[in-house]
Design a protein around this nucleic acid. Structure first.
Lengths: 224, 224
DNA sequence: AGCATGGTTCGATCGCGGTCGAAACATTGC
DNA sequence: GCAATGTTTCGACCGCGATCGAACCATGCT
């Protein structure tokens, strides 16, 4: 009988299929309404509402009320990281629930993780940013180099260092098993990719698919 | 309704208090018998046995039969990493089940994580190994430098590069929130710390407490 | 062989938690 | 005000899974 943080409590929150589906959906980063999440999880609205209040009480979600809509999202990148870790184990010990399809392949190439890019492209990008000395490794943390700040500014990405949330964070990628870039900078880069229409988000999926020219542009700017 | 790895399955395995206690106990790295785990979890032997077979079927454990004893341990460092990630979230969203006591403080300083050292001492050690260029960062991976191989050899730590398991791995520390050293090298260093009697394992806990002289020796060799 | 010890299987019990329909509540728009 | 839409609460139902005692299997000791 042990003391310490109550891991069973949070694990059991993730351990219900309906809630797991909801959390998975929110891994896309966009906040969703109760109705959308009910659909996503395949349960009725009352059931979904009950699950959501449990997740809220467990501290795993944030809630933004806007008029008669209530938008639910993951509470933090730490929660997102935990879900990726669980996903990694589930992947390893599988069997998969369904055989890997084309969408699965697209997910490995590029997908949304909370609010930033993940997948092979994202890992390659982080490698390259280190190579170009725009970012610096510090222990396991990542720091923005002076040259990096100006570089991103010329790309139209302004970094707000005053926010509580760190600018750069490493996030372990469950498919590649290496880190990609999270934090406000990671989020800003994903914003740019979407804003420039280099890629679009696959409907009802975390997959991010690049257009042919978009891929070239992305490679030129971030993998060059 | 989503496809993909079945995260609810593995999360629900961790989500039962009895199983969570067992997994926590096994985070100490030593394989334990069913009887010990039943005691640890505060359940009867049949109940524990049932939980253990579920964890086995879920792929979270390994089993080593020796005579009439059956030793259960975590299946992989990946599983250990997942549990640390969940612990981190549980810690963050707490409330703690009990108020932090002295043992808790000791855990933050140094503890066992699966089979290697974790906590402030372990994080400091990894920093220092990088500073001395005995280890090299590569992406998120860690590589043993040539000078490192010979250095550790002089300490009596021989590294077997042929094993499937990597020599060096980063493992995210839930209390410090930065990486410490895992892999066969991390395991070997912990072995040395215990073998040299620089520290002893707290009874029934993951805490590792250094003796006064042991702390000096450890600092001289690994933090110097 | 026979007994003790470690461990699993079986069967029965029981309670927690997931589920939904109906009703209540809240907000917006007309 | 009233209807429409989005969401939560209530109440009742039901089933899964956690639990334990007793019986059963396996290994080691003498």
């Amino acid at each position: 009988m042990r003391e310490g943080p109550d891991i069973a409590r949070v694990a059991s929150l993730v351990g219900d299929p309906a809630r797991a589906n909801m959390l998975n959906a929110m891994m896309g980063g966009t906040a969703l309404t109760a109705t959308e999440l009910a659909l996503e999880a395949g349960v009725s609205l009352p059931t979904a509402s009950s699950h959501l209040s449990k997740l809220m009480e467990g501290g795993l979600l944030t809630l933004a009320s806007q008029g008669r809509h209530r938008y639910y999202g993951l509470a933090s990148a730490q929660v997102a990281g935990m879900i990726e870790a669980i996903t990694g184990v589930a992947e390893a010990v599988g069997p998969r629930r369904v055989r890997p399809g084309p969408r699965d392949a697209a997910m490995r190439v590029a997908r949304v993780c909370y609010d930033h890019l993940a997948g092979e492209q994202a890992v390659a990008m982080l490698d390259c940013l280190f190579d170009k000395k725009l970012l610096l490794r510090e222990d396991n943390a990542i720091r923005l180099a002076p040259s990096g700040a100006s570089h991103f500014a010329t790309l139209g990405i302004e970094i707000d260092g005053k926010a509580r949330r760190p600018v750069c964070r490493a996030c372990l990628d469950w498919s590649v098993r290496r880190s990609h870039l999270a934090g406000t900078l990671g989020a800003a880069i994903l914003d740019k990719i979407i804003a420039e229409k280099w890629a679009r988000r696959e409907k009802d999926s975390r997959a991010v698919v690049f257009s042919p020219t978009g891929r070239q542009e992305f490679a030129r700017v971030f993998l060059g």
